[in-house]
Design a binder for these strands. Structure first.
Lengths: 237, 237
DNA sequence: CGAAACTGTTCAACCCATACGCTTTTTCAC
DNA sequence: GTGAAAAAGCGTATGGGTTGAACAGTTTCG
């Protein structure tokens, strides 16, 4: 009856709602939901670094170590917070291409709303419920391409990697108020060294200020490349 | 004369060899090179977690806080260690397509040799010397496509995101000895929940064990998609 | 020589994690 | 039914790790 979650990766069982059966002893003062919700709250307010066991414990009126009755480690907590914060994917339009565009844009929006999600270290393949909802949504949209499951997985890997990369860059360049200032400062430091160090192409990139303009275009650009590439594959088979 | 590195991101100045000028006072007992080399040593031997200021300090016969005379923070240390460990890119063959393939494979090899590089959190766009060598190499290879610099940057973003994602997945699935066992265990846990939870596509993916076979094929697959997508763009312009 | 500047150490705070001990509640034997 | 044992909960104590402030020793410049 009691699931043997000994060997499972941190957060897997808990994210699916499998909690260790408790048979005797005092009632828990807290709940996982409460803890995770507090973690998200702190993340939204003060960023990823603010999600600490100590802070959550203090906020809930408990000592830090009481947390370890609910999660095995901070890593497990982060996995749970991440899955909850990711939430559910939107309804995708029909047609794999519009669906892919909608899916990518939804993720970009998500990362814009909760930038700290980009700071969550990636442990490996997604296994938690909400993450898998996103995967499932895109995978079913891709199923109409007629490609093999294997190929569809490859396409998914391509898309998800791209979104994350793009969102990470967009956060650095675009979001915060002093970002342009900082970017300019970096440029002033970097350009002379690029010139002297033998980085001709990068030098011209920086001098043309290619990195500054329209990030929205960049998103569509890379996405179009990927989708065209998939199209080529579909035509080929 | 003294560069104002106050506003620069951590590790930027140091990675380019700009150290604060020292005029009087005792000679430093250590050097940045020494510290970074020790960090890489620990990373290679025991993984990313083993790179700690305390350990490095102990190994070099100093107290932990003496480290802060050399680096501003652990983050800065990690940036330096990362750049050094990344090293120089290989010579790329001529032709942008072969060059891209070689570039991607070289990175995959790098990540296979130093898996802990995948645990280094990504702060944003690359700015350190060796990282930029890689960027420069690929960018010059792409320059023969006749695309705009802007487009070339988009292609690069595509490729680098893909490599990292792929390598991260490959590490999880393929490397360690007990990985298959763990994967199977995850599958046993997950499949019933996928069935009941309404994940039909993922269920079939797991049942067909699509995730197990040939990762090398996957690398080539996604890469081919990207390159085909770029090809389409070139033809279009 | 004296003062300025840089060195490294000590002290202190916060965070993650483990071990142990006390209390509470359930279970089961009598 | 009742009471003791078992197990779960929380707190205290302890230790490794990152970070910063305050302090004392050293070297070099003026």
């Amino acid at each position: 009856m009691t699931e043997d979650r000994g060997e499972l990766p941190p957060g897997l069982a808990l994210s699916w709602g499998v909690l260790p059966v408790q048979r005797r002893g005092p009632k828990p003062a807290l709940s996982i939901e409460q803890i995770v919700a507090t973690g998200i709250e702190f993340g939204d307010r003060d960023g990823f670094e603010a999600i600490s066991l100590q802070r959550i414990a203090a906020h809930l009126g408990v000592t830090t170590n009481a947390m370890y009755r609910y999660v095995r480690s901070k890593e497990e907590l982060i996995v749970l917070v991440n899955d909850k914060a990711v939430g559910l994917p939107p309804e995708l339009p029909s047609g794999w291409r519009p669906a892919a565009i909608a899916w990518v844009n939804a993720q970009v929006k998500l990362y814009a709303e909760r930038p700290w999600l980009l700071d969550v270290p990636i442990r490996g393949a997604p296994v938690t419920p909400n993450q898998l909802r996103w995967v499932e949504a895109m995978l079913t949209a891709l199923s109409e391409t007629g490609l093999s499951q294997h190929d569809n997985l490859g396409c998914l890997l391509l898309l998800s990697g791209y979104v994350r990369n793009y969102a990470s860059l967009a956060r650095q360049l675009g979001s915060s108020a002093d970002a342009p200032v900082q970017a300019e400062q970096v440029g002033r430091f970097l350009v002379p060294r690029l010139i002297e160090g033998g980085y001709p192409t990068l030098t011209s990139v920086y001098l043309n200020q290619e990195y500054e303009d329209g990030l929205d275009d960049d998103l569509d650009f890379g996405l179009a490349r990927i989708l065209d590439g998939i199209d080529v594959l579909i035509a080929k088979r």
